[in-house]
Design a protein around this nucleic acid. Sequence first.
DNA 1: GATATTATTTCGCCAACACTAATTTTGGTG
DNA 2: CACCAAAATTAGTGTTGGCGAAATAATATC
Lengths: 227, 227
Amino acid sequence: MPGSLAHEPLTRSVEDYLKAIYHLSSKGEPAGTNDIAHLLALSPPSVSGMIKRLAEQGLIAHAPYRGSELTDQGRRLALRMVRRHRLLEAYLVEFLGYDWDTVHEEAERLEHAVSETLIERMAAALGNPRTDPHGDPIPMADGTIHEFVFNPLPDIATGSVVEIRRVNASEPERLRYLASLGLKPGTVVTLLDRQPFNGPISIRTGTHDHVIGHDLAMGLLCAPVEG
Amino acid sequence: MPGSLAHEPLTRSVEDYLKAIYHLSSKGEPAGTNDIAHLLALSPPSVSGMIKRLAEQGLIAHAPYRGSELTDQGRRLALRMVRRHRLLEAYLVEFLGYDWDTVHEEAERLEHAVSETLIERMAAALGNPRTDPHGDPIPMADGTIHEFVFNPLPDIATGSVVEIRRVNASEPERLRYLASLGLKPGTVVTLLDRQPFNGPISIRTGTHDHVIGHDLAMGLLCAPVEG
DNA sequence: GATATTATTTCGCCAACACTAATTTTGGTG
DNA sequence: CACCAAAATTAGTGTTGGCGAAATAATATC
């Protein structure tokens, strides 16, 4: 029954797939089977099989050999998971002493177990934040999300002063390193110098000067400092 | 491989079975297959099958047609789940506005998803409590548990003054009713009267007099008031 | 345009866990 | 002691969701 109205509870697997497809197709392109498999650490045949089931349930649109995209219903459910994940991260950091490099793993498991009630209570306890500890936007309870567009640090003009608004880095080591340099959402940095050919980037924070690699700097999304 | 050392993560099902067997065999007798099935809302054959798997893994000792008991390893794991459950209940009540009648269901799902780290942080945030909101003892992190023995209210001598220390009631309605009468752990009550043949019991709390049925009163476990 | 590479899917297969129906064991009871 | 009911198990099935091997489609290359 494609697109059945009564949404029986999703399995953990289905929730993971929807979230993966959401993230992978966030840049316009449909999500490739291999990419999903890689992200979820599964084999491509497993993903192929699940894709078929998800398509039958009306959660994704799948064109064979072309990739998968979320349907409206699928995106609604994916965003619900993203909201849960990011609120959990915020809550764990705020109230239970987690660091932004360790919190992902915990949230990854909890997001499948929390009730709507619990999530909303956590949101309330946090004062309904708009972003999680990495600066990623938290979807609203009604399923809307406001994705702001920031510029990666390497795209900033030399000499400008910008505020880090969002930090993209999946590996905990990167996050720990960035934290050790004080590079997190809210930090104001001045771009001192940029070497060509994806070379290192020199920046100045309030207290220190740092040189960081292009790769790492690409994960630092910035906006002009507000007056 | 019975009793393998490296404890690969348990499935949700296994965790539920271990907890069920722990509770059912807490009164000395091995847990019957039917009782487990009833408690977990499963069919007896399903339980029979799982029992075989658990016995193979060395988590329970099973004598066919005789019942199941936890091995030391199984008990250790069951107590870990009980600790998680009760700490979660305590945390949700203390910090997230849950009532003791709604908290069980939420904890029931979360207990399978929380890490050791998270549980210990919650315990610390609570000040390492010894009991949960129902007065049930919380096993220590090292796997020990102190089960105090209290007397059900109907066993108390008329005229005595006792403190409710623990409340056994699974249905939320019962718990809500008891809460509405102020009958919860810590409440001091005077036993006014006891009707024979499991009849109603009259009690006085600090502010009110109440008459409650024998059945309900059996769930109120009491101890003499401390000097 | 033929072919090599890569992405994707199909084809069995397996393990965990649930179920119903049928069978066996156990523990009484007349 | 024979028989019956309750408890437990076995037999057979289904679903979910993994896997590797092999086939196939899309894409890139010469």
